[in-house]
Nucleic acid binder design. Structure first.
Length: 471
RNA sequence: GGCGGUGUGGCCGAGUGGUUAGGCAGAGGUUUGCAAAACCUCGCACCCCGGUUCAAUUCCGGGCGCCGCCUCCA
């Protein structure tokens, strides 16, 4: 089979072939840190986290870079509103972003470069662009990129400069040669953070950092560049223009873009003020449910956010985690034998992921395994051969882990005081067992009802009761 | 207006030229002191109109609906 990936550039699926055999270099546009991350950020982070894990599972040596944009108009605006330094704002929300993403199981990138740490590289890039005639400085310390100088401008987003001119909405800056020219470097205004440059003190334009940092860490040509669909134009178009105007080499082989999270069928975004912060969602729903919601749809499709959707995703997750636990318990009582035979589920699972990271199909395979596995659990509990179940559980763990949804290795109890709660539940269950032994079911049921009310589900098993927290 | 995407059973959501997606919810059953969990069974879906074909939800053409980008945005 082999991996096939949808490339925004060609607008079709293509067989994946990396620049260097066996290795994959990935650059994903990270957040501009001026506010708390919302569900949309989580969607992008999880989408590319799964993509990254898939590459790894397929045997590639992966280098994964996600930047932090920590100098930007909005950060400055926010800092001014709050009367503090832009650096403090950026630092606060960088931490918030990293912490929130970790909560939904996103692995930290191999490299997480910050724009402000790469001013030298960016200035050098601008100098080279001026040298080739692709950029020009103007009065006021700004430097612009000349889109007309780059013949391939518009190829990525599939639009022509002439068509776009019709859509001009703001009156063009008279200093620009073409209205579509964009700023590589912005001359400093009073009160703004700035760095010295040949064109006077200033700061980098938004697109510049990604060109400078991706090429620094991954080379002039790398394999995968990712981000939200809203970044295709102008951000990625401009990045490509800047980069290739200097190197003349193909900047990126595969452009991947994730779909949006919507609310009431409308894009979630800061400007529409309809966003839900990730932390707010996590305060009400378990993290694995949130991740399940994101993984149960294809990464290029929109996902509509709703409480019902999260509840359903939570139910799906419950089925995963219940199986893992039931299987583990059944196997604990069984002899340690493993015949190491690969199951057909594994081939189906990876075939799904190799088709443009089709996580919904992959999830379906996991459910099929869970179903077969649950049947085996009962057989093993009845004294049957544990080998097949052991293989199922191991395979399940491995595959679910590729999606970042392995109940066995992830999602430790976040609740503070979990141990205390645990011992209290155990005590109550002990009393309930005594009541049950005395056939005092009234008392036994009362205890169980109270526990259920508190969010604890009790399961009576042949070997004694078992409980779990349900939200 | 330009460009891109999309329309699947109550809901979410894959996919395919003729053969079971999967899940959630719901109904019945097995099991259980009762539950929970699990298992079994059930609903015969593919926006509309043409066309190609022995056969189309799947291909082609047209139409309608919805979403996104074209300005900062994951």
């Amino acid at each position: 089979m082999g991996l096939v990936v949808y490339n925004t550039f060609s607008r079709r699926k293509e067989p994946f072939e990396p620049v260097a055999a066996g290795r994959v270099s990935i650059y994903v546009c990270g957040p501009t840190v001026y506010d708390l991350p919302h569900l949309g950020h989580a969607r992008a982070a999880v989408a590319f986290d799964v993509i990254r894990r898939t590459f790894r599972a397929l045997g590639y040596d992966v280098t994964y870079v996600m930047n932090i944009t920590d100098v930007d108009d909005k950060i400055i605006t926010r800092a001014n509103e709050e009367g503090r330094s832009p650096f403090a704002v950026a630092d606060e929300y960088t931490r918030a972003y990293q912490a929130s993403m970790a909560r939904v199981g996103v692995l930290p990138p191999d490299i997480a470069p910050r724009a402000t740490g790469h001013i030298i590289e960016m200035v050098a890039l601008v100098e080279q662009l001026i040298g080739t005639g692709a950029a020009y400085p103007v009065e006021g310390g700004d430097v612009y990129f000349s889109v007309r100088s780059f013949g391939k401008y518009g190829e990525l987003s599939n639009r022509s400069l002439d068509d776009m001119r019709a859509g001009e909405r703001v009156e063009p800056d008279p200093r620009k040669r073409d209205p579509m020219d964009f700023a590589l470097w912005k001359g400093a205004k009073p009160g703004e953070p700035s760095w010295p440059s040949p064109w006077g003190p200033g700061r980098p334009g938004w697109h510049l950092e990604c060109s400078a940092m991706s090429m620094k860490y991954l080379g002039e040509s790398f394999d995968v560049h990712g981000g939200g669909q809203d970044l295709i134009f102008p951000h990625h178009e401009n990045e490509r223009a800047q980069s290739e105007a200097v190197t003349t080499a193909p900047f990126v082989r595969f452009w991947l873009h994730n779909g949006f999270v919507t609310i009431n069928e409308e894009k979630m975004s800061k400007s529409l003020k309809n966003f839900v912060s990730l932390d707010d969602v996590l305060a009400q729903y378990p993290a694995p449910a949130v991740r399940m919601l994101l993984v149960a749809a294809h990464y290029r499709s929109p996902i509509d956010f709703s409480p019902d959707g999260l509840d359903e995703a939570g139910a799906m997750w419950q089925r995963f985690s219940t199986f893992a636990r039931n299987a583990t318990d059944a196997l604990d009582a069984a002899p340690e034998i493993d015949d190491g035979r690969p199951l057909s589920f594994e081939a189906d699972f990876f075939a799904a992921l190799e088709d443009d990271f089709n996580t919904p199909s992959a999830v379906a395979v996991l459910f099929e395994l869970v179903n077969a596995g649950n049947v085996l659990v009962e057989q093993v509990e009845a004294g049957g051969d544990p080998r097949l179940l052991r293989a199922h559980l191991a395979t399940f763990s491995k595959m679910a882990g590729v999606l970042g949804l392995d109940p066995l290795t992830q999602w430790p109890a976040e609740e503070s005081g979990a141990e205390i709660v645990g011992s209290l539940v155990e005590s109550l269950l002990e009393m309930r067992e005594r009541a049950r032994e005395a056939r005092d079911f009234e008392t036994a049921d009362l205890i169980r009802e109270r526990l259920v009310k508190a969010g604890v589900v009790v399961e009576d098993r042949p070997g004694g009761p078992r409980w779990r927290i349900k939200r």
